[in-house]
Design a protein around this nucleic acid. Structure first.
Length: 199
DNA sequence: GCGACAG
DNA sequence: ATCTTGTCGC
């Protein structure tokens, strides 16, 4: 299954992964690798592909995994941590996109979602405040406030890392905006490709 | 059966 | 996710 601990994990390089859409079957996958300390972009890859799998909450990975793996394959710097745009353990079957990516690649991974699938109590208003994300009376992740007064993001473990470390990484990756730089950069690249290459 | 439901 | 202008706020 999934490993939820990370003794001595080093995260010098972190990758942001995201998928953009240009229709029901045209997808754009992006993988951006950052220097975790300076937040400098070390490498970024954009790949186009097609899908026939529809968007079904809970089966998200079947739609986005293929393109993301292709993008990850072409990156020249193997990241120490993968940050997926979606859930990890915070999933109905406890196996969201971040888990698929981690288990498939063997690289530690976490999921950072803009919306929650479980329930949670509002964390404090200050950056760094957090509260448990609950599903079926089980703690599956955390609602984390990355900036004062903004809506929290939902962090959950993907593979080979623990929740505390996952939240710490997200805070480090989001020094200024609500979303971590990894997902922000991956998202803009995704949209750039979508508008410059559409029919 | 009905509603909810990451991107 | 995507379709979309101007607008409010730091």
């Amino acid at each position: 299954m999934i490993v939820t601990s990370a003794p001595g994990l080093r995260t010098d390089t972190v990758a942001g992964l995201d998928v953009g859409y240009r229709g029901d079957d045209e997808v754009v996958g992006v993988c951006v690798v950052f220097d975790a300390k300076t937040l400098d972009v070390l490498d970024e890859v954009v790949v186009e592909d097609t899908t026939n799998f529809p968007y079904i909450p809970g089966l998200f990975a079947f739609r986005e995994m293929p393109v993301l793996l292709r993008a990850l394959d072409r990156v020249t710097v193997t990241p120490d941590l993968l940050v997926a745009d979606g859930q990890g353990l915070a999933h109905p079957r406890r196996f969201g996109l971040a888990c698929h990516l981690g288990v498939h690649t063997g690289i530690p991974s976490i999921g950072v979602a803009k919306n929650a699938m479980g329930t949670f109590t509002q964390p404090g208003e200050r950056r760094g405040s957090m509260s448990d994300l609950i599903m079926d009376d089980e703690v599956v992740g955390r609602a984390l406030r990355t900036q004062d007064g903004v809506k929290p993001v939902f962090v959950s473990v993907g593979h080979k890392i623990d929740l505390d470390r996952a939240c710490a990484e997200v805070l480090r990756l989001a020094p200024r905006y609500r979303l971590p730089e990894t997902t922000r950069r991956a998202d803009t690249l995704t949209k750039r490709a979508a508008s410059s290459g559409r029919s």
